[in-house]
């Protein structure tokens, strides 16, 4: 469980990072909480690790009026603790499920996105909210919508010569409520199935829109606009009708093959239950209390 030898470089600027990545043999290291196990098991043997944590710009965590910008070197626990991160309540709901406290001490939010594990929580949050991921490369910088960013298991729109520099999550507006849930065999394990939900209601209390993203159910997070589905479940929501609707939704969304921990059918059932539960939770939170 010792990593194979590699060169290590910790540049001071994004341009230096890109110069190190230019030949395509380097791998970006931020918190390393997903990468180092891969190296330890020698599943990956990059020639160079490019540590981005010394780049000042990437250490920035900033709340703008309409969005939260998280630099690529910002640790998950920093986000968990930061007052300005409360502008994005769904992050606060999801982060406690990311690995363990000891991993979040070092792991970065953007690292979770860049690693793109199909069972990871933060990619689903990014898809659910329609976050933007900023990527720097030899051609300059571009912003990629989260729903286009994830291309498959551990595959993203960012190429090997590129680096994720930040992610921007939209701040919650009035009348928005969120839900998050997952089922894992043990706390901190990869989720068998999980869901992030966002529901918005108008001033009159009527449902305006509902979105969800599932994870652990496919080779990438799966996003759906479920406004019609939630509306058809009645107002107030009829639990049975909602559950029926999410069961149909699960059949369509869950396409991961079964494994020793759960068959496809089992994961569909988990996802249907979680989706119904967390949509109801988000709606309840979005609805103004009498």
């Amino acid at each position: 469980m010792k990593a194979a030898p590699f060169a290590y470089v910790r540049p001071a600027g994004v341009d230096d990072v890109l110069a190190e990545l230019a030949d395509g043999t380097g791998k970006v290291l931020a918190g390393g909480q997903s990468l180092v196990p891969v190296l330890a098991m020698r599943l990956g043997r990059p020639a160079t690790l490019v540590d981005i944590t010394a780049v000042r710009e990437l250490q920035d965590l900033r709340a703008h009026p309409d969005r939260l910008r998280i630099g690529a070197a910002v640790r998950q626990r920093t986000v968990e603790r930061a007052a300005q991160a409360r502008a994005v309540p769904l992050l606060g709901l999801a982060l406690p499920f990311v690995g363990h406290r000891e991993l979040r001490s070092r792991g970065t939010a953007c690292g979770s996105l860049a690693h793109a594990d199909p069972a990871a929580e933060l990619p689903a949050v990014a898809c659910c909210l329609g976050a933007t991921i900023e990527v720097a490369g030899p051609q300059g910088r571009r912003a990629v919508g989260a729903r286009e960013f994830f291309r498959g298991a551990m595959t993203t729109a960012a190429g090997p010569e590129e680096v994720v520099v930040a992610a921007e999550f939209p701040a919650a507006g009035p009348g928005e409520g969120f839900g998050f849930g997952e089922i894992a065999r043990r706390h901190g394990d990869f989720a068998l199935a999980g869901v992030a939900t966002a529901v918005r209601v108008g001033r009159d209390g009527a449902l305006a829109d509902a979105r969800l993203a599932g994870f652990g159910i496919s080779d990438r997070p799966v996003f759906r606009d479920v406004t019609a589905l939630l509306r058809e479940a009645g107002s107030p929501v009829e639990a049975d009708a909602l559950r029926e609707a999410t069961t149909v939704l699960a059949d369509e969304m869950v396409d991961t093959g079964g494994d020793a921990h759960g068959s496809t059918g089992y994961r569909r059932r988990l996802f249907a239950v979680l989706a119904a539960r967390e949509l109801a939770t988000a709606l309840r939170r979005a609805t103004p209390q009498e």
């Binding site: 030898p5 590699f6 060169a7 290590y8 470089v9 910790r10 540049p11 001071a12 230096d16 020639a47 540590d51 944590t53 010394a54 000042r56 250490q59």
Partner: peptide, 9 residues
């Protein structure tokens, strides 16, 4: 803040 550094394999 970590210092910039380079170490060859």
């Amino acid at each position: 803040a970590p210092r910039p550094q380079r170490v060859e394999a």
